[in-house]
């Protein structure tokens, strides 16, 4: 009798465990399909003839590399790509340098106005600066910065400073002050402490910051579209949209090919740096 009850209980546990596993995997697989489906459509379309009309998942050929060839031969895609790279690299280098210095200062030094200016950073970071379109336009006109990359780059850099300084400060804070003091006694000066002791320890965060700074200009539409006028001066995001912006003449295959060439390197960088993200996220998250 007792034994029967026992087996009955066991089988109900087994059954509920089966349902748990079943629905868990069902959810995970379903979600995976939803994620992969649109990406796969784009990837496959890039290798289809340029006259495809439907933007759907289809494993039927013929397959071709013609789109990629056409992209560079007949459109300004190569130029746009180069423009974006120039802006992105400049933004990345300068932004990371500026933000690292500022974050380090806020983490390591106490000085008059520190607390006040940190709060200022936090508030400024919330201002949707890109909405100040007209102001940027007039400023650009006044400084002869319209259609020039330096102007756009400066805006990207400035906009990234407050938020990223906060993140950087939060990460610098995780490096114990003991290291600085120990190095001080070892005879290290301010610069040596910064360069030889603290910097090597925040490398991961700097890599993440660099990636984000690099991706920023790739993703921006509003400013790039408004402040860059010449067709040949566009960034790749704005240019790419031209392929599909006309509902009557959508070049989906060309678009797909162009999209892949952008997404691939960024994806690769992303996954390469992925393991540092959680640390950066939680450090930044808990510090605001």
């Amino acid at each position: 009798m007792a034994k029967q009850v026992h087996t009955k209980g066991e089988s109900s546990i087994k059954r509920s465990r089966f349902f748990k596993h079943f629905f868990t995997y069902l959810f995970l697989i379903f979600l995976s399909l939803i994620i992969i489906y649109p990406l796969l459509i784009t990837i496959l379309t890039a290798f289809k003839n340029s006259d495809v009309v439907a933007f759907t998942l289809s494993f039927q050929g013929p397959w071709t590399l013609k789109n990629f060839h056409e992209l560079f031969a007949t459109t300004l895609y190569g130029k746009w790509y180069w423009n974006t790279l120039v802006i992105s690299v400049a933004t990345m280098v300068i932004l990371v340098a500026v933000v690292t210095l500022a974050g380090y200062t806020y983490s390591r030094y106490s000085f008059a106005g520190r607390k006040w200016s940190l709060t200022f950073f936090l508030v400024v970071q919330m201002v949707p600066t890109m909405a100040a379109l007209t102001a940027f336009y007039v400023l650009g006109m006044l400084l002869n910065g319209l259609d020039h990359y330096w102007f756009l780059t400066l805006i990207y850099i400035g906009g990234g400073i407050p938020m990223n300084t906060w993140l950087m400060k939060g990460y610098f804070d995780t490096v114990p002050y003991d290291f600085d003091e120990s190095a001080k006694l070892d005879g290290a000066g301010n610069f040596t402490i910064f360069w030889k002791i603290v910097m090597p320890l925040v490398k991961p965060m700097i890599a993440v910051q660099a990636l984000w700074a690099f991706m920023g200009p790739f993703g921006d539409f509003m400013l790039a579209r408004y402040l860059l006028r010449e067709e040949s001066n566009l960034t790749v995001a704005v240019g790419l949209q031209e392929f599909i912006s006309d509902p009557k003449d959508q070049q989906v295959a060309l678009f797909a090919a162009g999209a892949i060439l952008i997404a691939l390197p960024i994806c690769a960088l992303f996954f390469y740096l992925q393991k540092y993200f959680v640390t950066g996220l939680t450090a930044g998250g808990s510090k605001g």
Binding site: I35, L240, Q250, F255, I266
Partner: peptide
């Protein structure tokens, strides 16, 4: 699950704009 974050958003949004196309979208 990381893919949607890794792929630049503007690329996927434009892809979605094609995918949701009334007559030719997936």
């Amino acid at each position: 699950f990381l893919l949607p974050w890794a792929v630049p958003a503007f690329v996927t949004i434009m892809s979605f704009s094609n995918i949701f196309n009334d007559s030719a979208g997936a």
